[in-house]
Design a protein around this nucleic acid. Structure first.
Lengths: 342, 342
DNA sequence: CAGCCTAGTGTTAACGCTCACATCATCAGC
DNA sequence: GCTGATGATGTGAGCGTTAACACTAGGCTG
C-alpha cells in the first residue's frame, strides 16, 4: 500500500517498530542517530516513519530525558526596534542550536512581573531562560529567579548576579560625543532615556565622561522616554536655550521628534545644530536630514547571550560570567557638521 | 523545620504527598482545583507544595493529558511594526487564556520554510499554531500543514483553507483614497507594497476601486518594498511626473522616505502634494509634516486569531471559519490638504 | 577451539503525572 | 439497624519515550 493509512490516532514509536519489524528501541536508536544500527535496518525504520507520518512525542521524550529543547525569553517592549532585534537574534541563534523559543512579553517591568514570567516559563518546562532586562527593576528581579534554572541576562548591567551579554553603551556614547567635539563644538547637550533604564544611564555616563575629559562644560541633561513625542518636547526646551550647537540624543525615535521640533522653530540641522542619535533604526537613513547615529549590533548580542546560555546548559557553569561587551559603531550621515562660528 | 530542605533533586508529586500525609492523587486534585478535597487537606497540601518549592513537571503532565499548554506562532519580519504588534497581541491573548507562546521567525518566506517551521513547532509539542502569513507564498503553504494540527492564519486571505483573522485592507485603502478625493484632488497616486504580500494587493485593490467608482483616472502604480528606502526611490519617480497632487502610500515607512525625497526636490507637503500613509506607526505623528495615515488595530487581530484558535482547540471545529475582519480607521494629521488650483 | 570482544538488536524499567476505578467512612431514609 | 447514596481519599494502570542492561551471532585472539 502506498497511501498512508488514515490515522485515527497518531502513530507512536511502537507502531513504527511493528511496521519495520524491529523493536521500539531500535526505532529510538535510528531517530537519535545511534551508530549501532545496520544501514539496512535504519532504512527500513525510516521508511516506516515516513509511511506512518510518525512524529516523536515531545512530552514523552522530555519526560525521560529531562530536557524540553525549548528556551524561554522574557522581554519587554518588543515593538521597539532594539528589543525586537535582540529577540530576533536570540531566536535565530536558538534555532541554529536546535532549540525552540518560548516568549513572555512583560506588560510592566517590575520585580513581580519578571518573576511571574520566569515562573510561567519554568512551568512550561523550558531548559533555560534569557532575560532582556534593560531596566533596573528587571535586573533587580534576577536575584530571585527559580533556583536551579539556567538563566542569562541581556543588557542587565554587571551586577545582576547572572551571566550576561550586552552592548557597551558607554563606548557608544563616547563615540557620539567625541565625534561632535572633534567637529569643533564647544560642548554637547544630551537628551537622555528614562532614568530606570540601564542603557540610558550608561549613555549618560559616557556622555558626561567624554565631556569632562575634554574639559568641556557639562550642560544640564534633558530627560526623555525613548518616544518621538518626548524628543519633540525636548526640542522645545532646547530651542529656548541659546548657544546650543550639538545634541547627542539617546535614541533615534527621540531624534526624529527633535528634528521635527527644530524644524518648526526654523532651526536647521546640521547648519545650526548637529544631532547624533543612537540605535540606527532602518528609518534613520531617511530622516530629514539623514541621521548620524550609533549602531548597535543586536543580532550579535542575541547570538552571544545564546552562546552563553548553551554553555551553561552544557554544565560549564560560569557564575556571574560576563561575555565581552559588543562594541557599537558610529554611522556618519548628514545630521552633523562643524558649528557655525558667529 | 521551617527552611526548605536543600533540594538536590527537585521535588515531585510523591514528595509533596508524603510531606502532607496524603496520596499523590490528592495532591494532583488540589493542584487541578478539584472540589472533592476537604479544605483542611487542601491547606496541608498547599503548605507542603510551598515548603518543597514543588513545581509540576510540564512534560509528565503533558504526556498524559496530551496538551502542552503552549501555542506556536510562525511569523516573519518581526522587526516591522505590524508583525511585531500582531505578535504582541497574540502573546497577550494567549497568556490571558493560560497558554504559553513559542515562536518561530522565518528568515525567508516560502512554502518550504513555513512547513519546516510548522514541523518544528509541532515537534515541540505545541497544541496549536497561529501563522502570520501576509505573503502569498506563506498562505500557499497552509494547505500542507501537518494534519490534525489546529491552526489559524492571520492576514492570509480568504482562501487559505484555514480559519483566519485579518484587517480589512481594502476598506483601509478606500478610507485613505476617499479622504484625498473629498479634499478635491482629481486623482490619487499609489506607492504599493511588494506584490507578493496580500496586504499590498488588497490596498491596491481598494485604491483602484475607489478611484474607479469616483470616475477618476487610475494612474500607474508605483512599486515599493515597505522600506523607507523604496519610498525615497518612489519619490524621485513621482517628482518627475507633472500634476501629481495626492499620493496614497501603502505604509508609513515608505511615506517617510517619500517625505524626504519630496523635501529634497523642494516639493512641499501638504501644500504641493498630499500624502496618506498606512499603519500609524508611533513615529507617524512626528514626521515632517505629521502623517495622516490609516490605523490598524493589530492588538485586536491578535486577540481574534487567538480566540479562534482557542475555539478550535475546544473542539468547536470551524473549517474555513473566517472571523469578521477588523476595520481600520483614518487618522487625520497634517500631510493632507486640498490641492492648490493653478 | 575455548574465550572474548563487538556489532546489532531486544527487554525491562523508569520518568512524573492523570484517569478510571476501588475503597471507606458518613449520613439520610425507611 | 440495614441499604444506598455521597464525599473524601487511595490504588493501579498507563501515557510514549530513553536508559540500562541482556542477549545473540559472528570474528578474532591465543
Amino acid at each position: 500500500m502506498t497511501a498512508a493509512p488514515k490515522a485515527e490516532r497518531p502513530a507512536v514509536m511502537t507502531d513504527v517498530a511493528r511496521l519495520a519489524g524491529v523493536s521500539h528501541q531500535t526505532v529510538s536508536r535510528v531517530l537519535n542517530g545511534s551508530p549501532r544500527v545496520r544501514p539496512e535496518t535504519r532504512e527500513r525504520v525510516l521508511r516506516a516513519v515516513d509511511e506512518l507520518e510518525y512524529r516523536p512525542n515531545a512530552m514523552a521524550r522530555g519526560l525521560v530525558s529531562r530536557r524540553s529543547g525549548v528556551l524561554g525569553v522574557i522581554s519587554f517592549d518588543t515593538i521597539l526596534y532594539g528589543p525586537a532585534s535582540t529577540l530576533l537574534g536570540i531566536e535565530r541563534a536558538a534555532r541554529a542550536a536546535g532549540y525552540g523559543v518560548s516568549i513572555s512579553a512583560l506588560e510592566r517591568v517590575d520585580r513581580a512581573s519578571v518573576l511571574e514570567a520566569a515562573e510561567a516559563l519554568a512551568g512550561q518546562g523550558v531548559d533555560g531562560i534569557i532575560i532582556i532586562a534593560p531596566q533596573m527593576a528587571a535586573a533587580a528581579a534576577l536575584y530571585n529567579l527559580p533556583k536551579g534554572m539556567a538563566a542569562v541576562a541581556v543588557e542587565a548591567g554587571q551586577d545582576s548576579g547572572l551571566p550576561s551579554a550586552s552592548v557597551d553603551q558607554v563606548t557608544g556614547a563616547r563615540l557620539a560625543v567625541r565625534h561632535l567635539l572633534e567637529l569643533g563644538h564647544d560642548t554637547v547637550w544630551h537628551i537622555a532615556g528614562p532614568g530606570d533604564w540601564l542603557e540610558a544611564r550608561d549613555r549618560i555616563e559616557g556622555w558626561r565622561q567624554t565631556l569632562l575629559e575634554a574639559g568641556a562644560v557639562v550642560p544640564p541633561m534633558i530627560g526623555g522616554d525613548w518616544s518621538a513625542r518626548s524628543g519633540y518636547a525636548a526640542g522645545a526646551a532646547l530651542a529656548a536655550q541659546p548657544g546650543v550647537t550639538a545634541v547627542f540624543v539617546a535614541n533615534d525615535q527621540m531624534s526624529l521628534g527633535l528634528l521635527r521640533a527644530l524644524h518648526e522653530q526654523g532651526i536647521r540641522v546640521p547648519d545650526d545644530i548637529s544631532i547624533v542619535g543612537f540605535d540606527d533604526i532602518p528609518e534613520a537613513e531617511f530622516m530629514l536630514p539623514p541621521l548620524t547615529t550609533v549602531r548597535q549590533d543586536f543580532d550579535e548580542v542575541g547570538r552571544r547571550s545564546m552562546a552563553t546560555l548553551l554553555r551553561l546548559l552544557d554544565g560549564a557553569a560560569g557564575e556571574g560570567e560576563v561575555a565581552a561587551q559588543v562594541v557599537p559603531t558610529l554611522v556618519l550621515r548628514a545630521s552633523t557638521a562643524p558649528p557655525r562660528r558667529g
